[in-house]
Amino acid sequence: MSAAPIDTGRILRDLDELWVNLGKDEHGGAGSDGVLRACSMTLVVCTEGHDAELGETLALLMRDHPSRLIVVNLSESAAALTASVTAECWMPFGRKQQICCERIAIEIPEHAIGDAPSVARGLIAPDLPVAVWCRSRRLLHHPEFRTVVRLANKLIVDSSDIEDLAGRIATLRAFRDADTRVADLAWTRLTRWREAIAAIFDDPDYLAHLDAMDRVVLEYQGPHRPMSTCYLPAWLAHCLGRRFETRWYRAGDSPRPRLFRVALHGTSLDVAIKVEADRSVQMHTGTRDSHCVFPALGEYDLMREELAIGGEDPVFEAVLNLAPEFA
């Protein structure tokens, strides 16, 4: 069964009309310099159900990465495929010109998922990169979703809450091909941890003892091991070019699984980083302890970092290859 068809040509005409009207409205105002249409990529967001925070996240993202935004929402309440166009506008501080991005919202009923790829294909901004952010587990595993991903240069998912680590890694590896890169916000969340570890070994005194590292201990909180406890040792193994003993411990409760502490041990090496729930960080290196704060990162911060990487992320590619060993 198919839902009522959407005419992509009609949506594009609606977009053109939207810009004409925006231009008229703004030029009419006193002291206004009109609107600037900004688009550096197409961002397809696949989601399901109503999420008020997502709208805010996307509005912020548009300022960093102006895009043609296509939000595909899998909706239980929708009877037919529907589409609407709006503009996401903001006025930079001190400027008289509004910057606007276009947003196409598509509601898809469950039975019409198969129609989504053809609709999305017709709406992609020509000759610009395409990123697909899949926030829906059901869509990720839907057979038709692969067709949507084929349109993309980059597929972004978030595996932070996934329990089946090995299964998710296999899924991500299966999506990866010559044209599509895969990104995982669970990996993006590790950037501060990895930077902190790297900073410790900027000190030649610690670097000299790195060869002695033979054991990694990862402590986590929450109902099950988070994906970060798989990615982090895979990264260490990739960087060192060798294996080491890896142990995992559950170190308390948390509503969502989270990495709590990482320790690198060896005969002459004793390094540990612990991040409390309030993001305060305790770094232990030998006999010294120091403190700092990891900024709290929401989806906006994580997506902002991911969308800034247009090309290859060779470190994550390598980590994804090694990750099954630590799942």
């Binding site: 950037t191 990895r194 930077e195 790297a198 070994f201 070019g241 290859e312 060779p314 470190v315």
Partner: peptide
């Protein structure tokens, strides 16, 4: 330092 990641790290 083997732990560099020029794509992501400042």
């Amino acid at each position: 330092n083997p732990f560099q990641d020029p794509v992501r790290f400042q």
